[in-house]
Every structure is written in structure tokens, then in C-alpha cells.
């Protein structure tokens, strides 16, 4: 039987974000991210002045793009993409040239000083391959993040993207980002 096609992605409902940073902490604990580096983070933007003002919180991480420029520029093929869309770094082949970090429009990668290689969000493949949600998604108290398979018409993510308005960041780079922000 042919393997079912999968395309993993994340939908983010920023309006629910309370900037508690539990996602960032859960990710750091799950993936042993060194102090000073982050695989996911929350952008803050301010508007207006007291008492008429608003603050927006917007979680961000690797967008696991459709046409990832980090994968294209990698000279050894260490940066690669699984068939289900997850963009990964094969550490054994990474020479630490950091070209991918420069090529990422979202600055979503970091250099791991100890290993001398580049690290990034893996969408917690060690968890999702076993049917468990990524750590950031599981821990979010206000359910900002929805993880799922875009190819599965019965999934929540499929429903959200069919019924809600959304946008992606910096589509003009041509990367085809797969982090969908509900508006």
C-alpha cells in the first residue's frame, strides 16, 4: 500500500497569546537548547500610547517552508527536508559554515557552540513520529498553536485554514512559509 502523503504545518492564533513563554521554555527543556539560543520565541509589538494602546504577541519559529532557502544554499546537503515538509539539519554532514543561518529570512536557526553545527526547530519529530504533539503545542495554556497535517481533510488545521482568514510572514521571499497566522 502506498504511503499516505503528509504535510505538517502549524497554525498560530496570535490573539490568544499571553506572552507566558511556556512554549519557549518547553522547547528548551525538550530539545536541550543552550542558554542564549531559542528555537521558538515571541515577537512583541506596541502600538499607541497610554491609555490608548495595545500590545501584540506573536509566536514565531522555523516556518518549515515549502521552498526553504536554507536547504537550497547548504553546500553539503546537511540542511534537508523530509517528505512531510519538516526542515532538518543532518548534524553529521553539517560543517558549520552558517550559510543557512544567513539565508533564513526568519533568523530561525542558531549555531550550537558545543557541537559546532547549526540547530533549529525540528517540529519535535521524535514526538510527532510517535503520534505525540510538539512540546510547544502541547504546553501552550491558551491553545495558540495548532499542529497538524494539511493533507488530512479531517484535521483541525485543515478546518481552520478552510474557514478562517490567515496570513504568512514575508511571502515575498519566495520561501513558501508554512506557519499560518490567523487574522
Amino acid at each position: 500500500m502506498a504511503m499516505k502523503k503528509r504535510r505538517y504545518a502549524l497554525v498560530i492564533d496570535s490573539r490568544k497569546c499571553i506572552n507566558c513563554k511556556a512554549c519557549a521554555v518547553a522547547c528548551k527543556a525538550e530539545n536541550e537548547v543552550p542558554v542564549g539560543n531559542f528555537r521558538n520565541w515571541i515577537n512583541e509589538s506596541h502600538q499607541g500610547e497610554y491609555p490608548k494602546l495595545r500590545i501584540d504577541f506573536e509566536p514565531e519559529q522555523c516556518h518549515h517552508c515549502e521552498h526553504p532557502s536554507c536547504v537550497r544554499v547548504c553546500p553539503t546537503g546537511a540542511s534537508w527536508q523530509r517528505k512531510d515538509g519538516v526542515v532538518l539539519v543532518a548534524e553529521d554532514d553539517c560543517i558549520g559554515c552558517r550559510y543557512c543561518m544567513i539565508a533564513c529570512p526568519y533568523d530561525a536557526r542558531y549555531f550550537h557552540e558545543e557541537s559546532g553545527t547549526v540547530h533549529k526547530c525540528t517540529l519535535c519529530i521524535h514526538r510527532i513520529d510517535g503520534g505525540v504533539l510538539p512540546a510547544c503545542v502541547e504546553t501552550c495554556p491558551s491553545k495558540v498553536r495548532v499542529f497538524g497535517d494539511l493533507e488530512d481533510p479531517t484535521s483541525r488545521i485543515h478546518e481552520l485554514l478552510s474557514t478562517r482568514r490567515y496570513q504568512v510572514k514575508e511571502p515575498q521571499t519566495g520561501n513558501g512559509p508554512q506557519l499560518y497566522y490567523l487574522v
Binding site: 544554499v73 553546500p75 553539503t76 553539517c94 560543517i95 558549520g96 559554515c97 550559510y99 553545527t117
Partner: peptide, 23 residues
Amino acid sequence: LDLGHWYRFYKLFTHFRWESPMS
């Protein structure tokens, strides 16, 4: 010397990636 792993530079020559200017 600027590479994270200088001794892995040989991997540049065990791969050829025409889309990568560095390759």
C-alpha cells in the same frame, strides 16, 4: 578555520549541490 568543524571541510567535496553557490 571559520567552519564550526574545520576538519569536516572535505565534506564540501563529497557532495555537489548545483543550487548552492558555496558548493
